[in-house]
């Protein structure tokens, strides 16, 4: 019982981290058909700048704020310098974002050094709760709570506000929204920045969770996010949460029972989805 609870919590926490990464990817794709292969780069930059501030100020809260700001700024730079020059050309877009991913990853090594850095959870999140015979690790519960908070906030923004309405309409039919006199590029830039901030947030939350950070983890982790985007349906926000939790749980259980197969099982889920529902589990209507 303890084991199952622990693996489930673990899986949900991993799932939430993947969700934060995938949410931005899927909305960006839905709006402009841009698949940002540099998303993993934003993830590690969030992690490294956050950890840097964390080690200096000892405040994890400040670290999270730093990561989010890093994400917003890098998101703006990416959108302006990398994606904007090649709008409308899918092949160039895909090629260029991967190039930027590599630059971001190598810049980490130049700025922060190429070694693996150890990170510990802050004191107020270290340790665990004991409920009966089940041990609940505080930090993992914290990640799940943050993930849910982000999900519901964005969900409400998408459903209840005017800007959310524009974004949802843009995902369904970009041309129509433009025809109605809305500057979709501006909306897209805002969504891109928010997506980048979520990726950076995911990075800093992931750092104490895995205990260490290194430059290559961005690309490794973003592969999971791509798998999630395919399973959840490209452009579907809710889909990305469900798919991320599915992938996170599969990852956690397989890592315990068959460690060699943990990536393979997620690939298998993706392959099954691609064969039977290539549009993803949650297709965007429109």
């Amino acid at each position: 019982m303890d084991l199952i609870a622990s693996l489930t919590i673990n899986g949900l926490a991993t799932g939430m981290l993947i969700f934060l990464l995938a949410a931005g990817l899927t909305l960006i794709f839905g709006l402009m058909s841009v698949l940002n292969f540099a998303h993993g780069g934003l993830f590690i930059w969030g992690a490294y700048t956050g950890v840097w501030i964390y080690s200096m100020s000892e405040s994890f809260f400040l670290a999270i704020i730093t990561a989010i700001i890093t994400g917003l700024v890098l998101g703006l730079i990416t959108e302006r310098l990398i994606i904007r020059p090649v709008y409308g050309n899918h092949i160039q877009q895909i090629l260029i974002t991967l190039g930027f991913m590599i630059v971001l990853q190598e810049l980490i090594k130049v700025v922060f050094g190429p070694d693996i850095k150890a990170v510990n959870a802050p004191a107020w999140l270290a340790g665990n709760f004991q409920v009966g015979e089940i041990t609940l690790i505080k930090y993992r519960l914290f990640i799940i709570a943050v993930g849910l908070l982000v999900f519901f906030t964005i969900y409400l923004i998408l459903k209840k506000t005017r800007i959310g309405l524009i974004v949802r309409a843009g995902v369904m039919n970009r041309e129509m929204v433009q025809t109605l006199g809305i500057n979709i590029r501006f909306v897209f830039m805002a969504v891109f920045m928010v997506g980048a901030a979520l990726a950076a947030l995911s990075g800093i939350l992931h750092a104490p969770y895995s205990g260490s950070i290194y430059a290559e983890m961005g690309l490794e982790f973003s592969i999971l996010a791509f798998i999630v985007v395919v399973i959840g349906g490209m452009g579907s926000f809710t889909g990305s949460l469900f798919a991320a939790l599915l992938v996170g749980l599969a990852q956690a259980y397989m890592a315990y029972y068959f460690p060699a197969l943990s990536l393979a099982v997620n690939m298998l889920i993706m392959v099954v989805v691609l064969v039977f529902r290539p549009q993803g589990l949650f297709k965007v209507k429109g």
Binding site: S33, H90, I94, I223, F226, V229, V230, L263, M270, P278
Partner: peptide
């Protein structure tokens, strides 16, 4: 049979595997 992005993503994932 899907958009270009899918092949790019899937090959990235397979190479990772």
């Amino acid at each position: 049979r899907l958009k270009t992005h899918f092949y790019a993503m899937l090959t990235l994932a397979f190479a990772g595997l």
